[in-house]
Nucleic acid binder design. Structure first.
Length: 526
RNA sequence: GUCCCGGUAGCUCAGCAGGAUAGAGCAUCGGAUUCCUAAUCCGAAGGUCGUGGGUUCGAAUCCCGCCCGGGACACCA
């Protein structure tokens, strides 16, 4: 809608016009402060300019009213325009809010180490990534969801050792747990399973590598099922281990581009040259590549696949990595600006008001699956999506458990279910009302209609800014408006019945599509 | 010490590519149900937008300093 209006205005003025939402509803649907900008150029008063502009714009048929006020120009859309759009939307639900942005995007997220189940911190990135992907696709982009599996290195070995130690314990041996070992119920379960599968020889012969390898696969399966529980699936999984086959190739390119030097028997990346605070070791003295090496190869292969844009959702504790990875990309001859990092800030947990320390090692972390079981996947998703990804999020597990009707996802679903219920009571279907002209509506109805039709610009804005809370905020506000309307205006049996039913269907449409883009299915009955 | 994120109502947070009187939810208080789902609605109260400067017609929003909170600063992944 906004685009269409903007286009029409710009056709007249031949100038970029900023459209905003008026502070107050009575001012109209859109407003522009353009007169203030022009005032400077033309050296005339904004009021005068606004006056003239308004007269000019008023010719457009999409407007019912164009009014200058204190230098602003306020626009009110015509009923015909809104009705036409509403009818189209109702008939073309799959198209509603779509666009043709056409970027090829590689979206990497979660990428949690396969050394344990997903915890609540991982869930945040997972939920954000999924919603971003859905919205991006809706807007006409091609998006590949990818998971980078850190299946190489020390932590996988530690996983094997931890399983081994736990198995020893099960067999009644006295063991001591070093701090860095993984603990937790899942390790015990793995140990039990391993003993069943491989027998006690696995302990007697101390077959750590075998345990590591097997345990890693088990954990990957567990992670996949954790994700499936909240409706998230990946298009592609990339194994760090397999990437190392290309290390020689990548190293050669880096060398060729003068990115590498040797010092103290190690190979260093000149990441300083491109904005990092110091150079980084990529190969240790003993010849083993560092973690960064894996990430360099990974991004090399990403860029080789030729996407327009690469988005990584990382935990905020990785922010130090941005500079060095971007430097590496530059050295490899690619454009680091194509890589965009979204940082998902820490999730801190309270339990009964007390800080709840998350630590995988100690095993007292809150599992994503636990929380899903407590409050449901929808509530969890909505909570994460309601907050900007780069703000610290603190919530009390107990509060979340208690949350029921005060949970916004219920509130929104209730609005959707309510509309469905009214339709049923009225005994009418979409076909019965979709062509009824929405004319002569009262103020509340017009406002509601306008709000419901705003979804497309909300999701576009949300995707552009990578701020998904704009969608949740919108849905909350739309639901509130619906509830308010519902309480004030009777639908069934009035002369407005068909008009109102059509209006309500538009609201339901927006709620349903909006929720779906967040990975939540709207409820038809509650 | 350096870097990142945050500081807006009692609490959790929106608003920030500058714009009209700073918003919502929860909590508090007061109302609404013979009527389409009260899982709802209506109303009240609640604010030095951390702080000090600067930029300008205009700053919660942009710039600089400072204060407070959280996090990151590996040849771990």
């Amino acid at each position: 809608m906004r685009k269409r209006v903007q286009q029409e205005l710009q056709n007249i003025l031949q100038k970029e016009i900023v459209l905003e939402k008026p502070k107050e509803k009575k001012f109209g649907h859109f407003a522009t402060p353009i007169a203030f900008t022009l005032a400077k150029e033309l050296r005339r008063s904004p009021m005068q300019i606004a006056d003239e502009l308004a007269k000019n714009f008023a010719k457009l048929s999409i407007f019912e009213k164009v009014e200058p006020l204190k230098g602003y120009v306020n626009f009110k859309l015509s009923e015909d325009f809104l009705d036409e759009y509403a009818t189209w939307a109702l008939r073309n639900e799959p198209e509603f809010g779509t666009d043709k942005q056409g970027e090829k995007i590689l979206l990497e997220f979660v990428s949690a180490n396969p050394t344990g189940p997903l915890h609540i911190g991982h869930a945040r990135g997972a939920v954000i990534g999924e919603a971003l992907s859905r919205i991006g696709k809706h807007l006409g982009n091609e998006i590949v969801k990818e998971y980078y599996i850190n299946d190489a290195g020390n932590q996988i070995y530690l996983l094997g050792l931890s399983i081994y130690l736990s198995a020893c314990e099960i067999l009644g041996k006295e063991v001591e747990w070093p701090d860095e070992y993984y603990r937790g119920e899942y390790i015990k379960e793995l140990a039990r399973k391993a003993l069943e599968l491989f027998g006690e020889e696995i302990v007697e012969h101390k077959q750590i590598d075998r345990l590591s390898d097997w345990g890693k696969d088990e954990m990957m399966e567990l992670i996949r099922s954790n994700l499936a529980e909240v409706g998230i699936e990946f298009d592609s999984f990339v194994s760090e281990k397999e990437l190392y086959q290309k290390w020689d190739e990548v190293l050669a390119i880096l060398r060729e581009h003068g990115a590498i030097y040797e010092k103290d028997g190690k190979l260093w990346l000149r990441s300083c040259e491109y904005g990092d605070e110091k150079d980084r070791v990529v190969v240790r003295e003993d010849g083993r590549p560092t973690y960064l090496a894996g990430d360099i190869i990974y991004h090399y292969t990403k860029f080789q696949r030729g996407f327009d844009r690469y988005i990584n959702i990382w935990g905020a504790d990785h922010h130090g990595y941005i500079a060095r990875v971007k430097a590496a990309i530059k050295f490899l001859g690619y454009d680091p600006d194509k890589l965009e990092i979204i940082l998902a800030q820490m999730v801190s947990l309270l339990k009964g008001g007390e800080p709840y320390k998350m630590s995988k090692r100690a095993g007292n972390f809150i599992l994503m699956s636990e929380v899903v079981e407590e409050i449901g996947a929808d509530a969890l998703k909505f909570m994460f999506l309601s907050k900007k990804s780069d703000t610290h999020l603190e919530f009390d597990v107990d509060m979340l458990k208690k949350e029921d009707s005060s949970n916004p996802v219920y509130y929104i679903n209730y609005a959707h279910a309510r509309i469905n219920s009214v339709m049923q009571k009225a005994g009418k279907s979409l076909e019965d009302v979709v062509d009824v002209p929405l004319k002569g509506l009262n103020e509340e109805a017009k406002d509601l209609l306008f709000s419901a039709l705003l979804l497309p610009e909300v999701i576009e804005d949300a995707f552009f800014k990578r701020e998904l809370q704009r969608v949740t905020d919108y849905l909350k506000a739309l639901a509130a408006q619906l509830h308010s309307f519902y309480n004030k205006h009777k639908v069934i049996g009035t002369e407005n019945e068909d008009k109102y039913l059509k209006l309500l269907l538009v609201v339901a449409l927006s709620i349903r599509v909006g929720l779906r883009l967040l990975g939540i299915e709207a409820k038809y009955r509650m």
